[in-house]
Design a protein around this nucleic acid. Structure first.
Lengths: 215, 215
DNA sequence: TGCATGACAGGTATTTTTTCCTGTTCCAGT
DNA sequence: ACTGGAACAGGAAAAAATACCTGTCATGCA
């Protein structure tokens, strides 16, 4: 069952997913920015307007969403889809110390010339990985309100790692892993104003490593 | 990816599945029997004609096929390949404040239950994006030796953004953008022990936003 | 405070798809 | 052999969606 309402809702959801408005999504897909205006979803005589199949094809291509996921949006599914594996991504890499030398950037600051390595980013979409959105200022100066942290519950933990911890009491916090013993976990605070914590294993519900942070 | 060919192939497959011709399917769906003629799949000037989403909706309803099954036909029918074709960079998202409430994580700390949004990570492979590897300790506490910063020269800059800057003198540094005026750029230091900087535009070769940092 | 840009409503012109129609061919039943 | 209905190609008219355009409002930045 494919309904007019569901198609428009899927378009809105797809836009939101890319932090775009409906007009931003249309523009991104090479359509007129007014194409998906709410005011144009019914014609003057009240008849539903359906976006064309070609327009859908264009937004699907522009956003890179898969047909399966677009189907999920069409069905109004909000739950996270099943585990998946993302293809590895690769960008040019250079060390900070070398970056100042000439020949590595063009005039606009884009990578250029020889001497760049490539780095495969750790797949952020590794099974079970999720994102946490920072709220408040308790994690400054490291994490600001609105920052997004990618957390991988399956990642190995080492001292010095930045971690998210949930206590048995229901508190979720970001800390630096100082030390793990058989009985307890010592956690340094990200914010110097907050006290460090020592949690007995019985107080610790789970702990997972932060692998990436948005800036 | 939704292509013209795939849509028409799906319509033909759906008709065949019901022992109908294309014209029979159209008729069954209340459309004109010539609607899906092969002769009408390209317009006179060779441009592909796409059946409208409304027409698709009508055949789906008339045949009783599910959206999932229609998706399978769109994807070339055949073997049901991976049931999930994941988006390349999307993970479940929740706010820190909600994360402590029950029902969002299983016992092992993996995302579970309802209430999770999705966030689409910025494609690291956006044209021109590159990685810088932190060397030394001058950017503590934010960035540690060995951390990887993803930099996007094409990203819009706003005050408060963490940026990489190259000076005309060849120095590359990470700073916080405090203010841009027509003549100068004010940069806050990441490390409280280092002085803030004001650069005249003539001293600034380029400036680019850090979009992600490894942890 | 002023300016630039994006989001959105709404109108018109243009393009595209559907509907209506006709003709030819094919096939099954009488 | 004849007839009726379906399948299909193709053309023109009507309907529907997109493109283009304008104006208003909101937001962020200098």
């Amino acid at each position: 069952m494919l309904s007019h309402e569901k198609v428009w809702a899927a378009i809105d959801a797809l836009a939101a997913r890319h932090s775009l408005s409906a007009s931003g999504l249309a523009r991104k897909a090479g359509l007129d920015s007014t194409a998906f205006n709410k005011s144009k979803r019914l014609s003057a005589d009240g008849r539903p307007r359906w976006p064309s199949t070609e327009s859908l094809s264009k937004i699907i291509e522009a956003t890179g969403i898969t047909l399966s996921d677009f189907l999920a949006l069409l069905q109004g599914g909000g739950a996270p889809s099943a585990p998946y594996e993302a293809p590895p991504s690769s960008v040019p890499l250079i060390g900070f110390a070398q970056a100042g030398a000439g020949g590595f950037f063009d005039d606009a600051g884009f990578p250029a010339g020889q001497g760049w390595d490539h780095i495969d980013l750790p797949a952020p979409a590794r099974e079970g990985a999720y994102a946490l959105q920072v709220q408040g200022e308790s994690m400054l100066p490291l994490y600001r309100d609105g920052d997004t942290l990618i957390v991988d519950p399956a990642a190995r933990l080492r001292r010095g790692d930045r971690v998210v911890v949930k206590t048995a009491g229901g508190e979720v916090m970001a800390k630096i892993l100082q030390r793990q013993t058989g009985e307890a976990v010592e956690l340094l605070s990200l914010n110097p104003e907050h006290a460090n914590r020592v949690l007995r294993k019985s107080e610790l519900e789970w702990m997972a490593r932060i692998v990436w942070a948005s800036q």
